Simulated scan of single mutants.
Amino acid sequence: MEHDAAPARRPYDASRRRAAAEQRRQRVAEVAARLFAEHGWNGTTLALVAGEAEVSVEWVTKGFGGKAGLFMAAFASAGLGRRGGLLNAFHELRLEDDPDPDARLDRFVEFACGIVEPMGPLVGVLLSGAEQDPTLRDLVRTAHLSHAAVCEELVRLVAVGEPAPDAVDEVYLLTRAEVYQTLAQHRGWTIERYAAWLRRSLRAAVDHGTTY
C-alpha cells in the first residue's frame, strides 16, 4: 500500500523572526522612555520596565545589556535613534540647498522642536545616570560635541552678514532641551509658543541682537 507523501516543511523564515524581535525591542524601548521620564533614573528598574512591557527581566537584560543600555535605547527611541544621531539628522535637512537664510531658520526651528519635545523629559535622567554610569557619561560627551557642531553649522547657514561674536554659544544655550523643558513645565509654554520664541531668539543671537 502506498503511503501519502509527508507534507512539505515550510522554510524557516528568519527575516520574519528578526522583524518580530526588533518590534518587541522597539516597544520595550518606548515603554522604558516613558517610565524613565516619569520615575527618573533611580526610580526606573529593569523589573518595572519588564512588567509594563510584558516581557521577562531576563529578556530585558539580555536584549539591552543592563540599565544603561536600556536607557540608551529609550533615549534613541524618543528622538534621533533611527536617524543616526543629531549631527546626521541635521545634515539630512540639507539647509544649504535653500538660498534663503530665513527659510533655513524656519526649517531648523521645526527640526529643533521635533527633538526637544520628546527628548526634553529624558535629559535630566541622562545627567543623573551619567553620574553613576561611565557609558552614559560617554553619551553625554558625545551629545555635547554633536550639539556644538550643529550650532556652528547653523550660525554659518542662517547668518545675514557677519555673525555676532558669541553667536555659536548663544545658539547652543537656546537650543538645549532643558530650556524647553523649563519653559514647558514651569511656565506652561506650548510647543508653538516655544517655536516662535526660539526663532526670534536665534535670529537675534546670530545677527548682533537684531530682532525681526
Rank of each mutant, 00 (worst) to 15 (best):
D97A: 15
G69F: 15
L87H: 02
A130W: 05
G124M: 01
D106V: 07
G69R: 14
V125Q: 11
L95H: 09
F108H: 09
F90C: 03
G81E: 04
R107F: 04
G66P: 13
A89S: 10
V109R: 03
L87C: 01
V140P: 13
D133E: 12
A89V: 02
S77A: 15
S128R: 15
S128Q: 15
P101A: 00
D133G: 02
E96G: 13
L127F: 14
L80I: 05
P134Y: 02
D102P: 03
A76V: 06
A130Q: 05
P99S: 10
F75G: 05
S77K: 08
V140S: 06
G81D: 09
E92G: 00
L126K: 10
V123R: 01
P99L: 11
N88G: 04
L87P: 00
P134T: 00
R94A: 15
F108T: 12
G85Y: 08
V140N: 04
T135Q: 14
V123Q: 04
S77V: 12
F71D: 10
R104C: 09
G120W: 04
L126F: 02
M119W: 00
E92Q: 14
P134N: 00
L87D: 01
D106Q: 09
V116F: 04
R137F: 00
G129K: 11
F75K: 08
M72G: 14
D98G: 02
A78V: 07
L126C: 08
L105C: 03
A103E: 12
L122G: 08
L105K: 05
A73L: 15
A89L: 02
H91Y: 13
A130N: 03
D98R: 08
V109A: 01
